[in-house]
Amino acid sequence: MNWLPYSVSSRLPRLSLVAYMVAFFVFLLGPIFIVVAISFTTTEFVAFPPKGFTWRWYERFFDYEPFVNSFIVSVELAVATALLGGFIGIPAALAVVRGRVPFADSIMTFLLSPLSMPLIVIGFSLLFFLSALGLGVSFLSLLIAHTVISVPYIVRTVAGVYRSISPDYEETAAVLGANRIQIFFYITLPMIKPGIFAGMLFAMLISIDNLPISFFFGSYETNTLPVVMLSYLEHQFDPSVAAASSIQLVVAVIGLFIVERIYGLDAMAPAT
């Protein structure tokens, strides 16, 4: 950096941080802002900057049956995914972290492996697999598929929180006369609750947002909102899709807000 004047090179770290922040706002938050702005335009087509202000596209969203139905499917699916994922993921995380399980590290890697598989591949292969099992395109298939990709998030947050808790608490409870079940309900569960909550919320957000997997299991009853939005976009380009996106956004923001108020967003930092 000798060719730079000292006054510039000494401030380089700071300047690059500012540049990074600017880029972050422009490329990550900018598009979101644009989508929200577009959803209020009075034009018949997607236009930015928006012209005027109207709730019309939100009305359109709630009038258009496929949107509403798929929105309900999405929400139901997200909740069911979080519950089923928690039912599978929580015990798995506890066993891997502190059970005397052989090959615990390998099992952990296996549990997290859906994260590193292309979603298209998971969706495609699950469609064949579940069809072969006779489940075909159904809400249950969709639930299984979403659970497969959500479990890693739950395992990771629960394991992260559990690992940070000293085994001394459980051992203390044991010496004080608690059996394994009592230890779990009186000590372990209350202490890992932030991880469970964050993991399950994460699972819901992943499920609500998912397109590549839901796409393979689409039918009139099982279309999720992202699937319907995509097919809507193929035929029309009116701002109601922007309204639908904004509604999804609000759902996600409310979820994050709840986590932040109850546990702080730190709890969601994917601990490994």
């Binding site: 051992e171 044991a174 010496v175 004080l176 006369g177 608690a178």
Partner: peptide, 8 residues
């Protein structure tokens, strides 16, 4: 451990 009647 829970049946040994200890304190720790």
């Amino acid at each position: 451990p829970n049946k040994r009647g200890l304190g720790m």
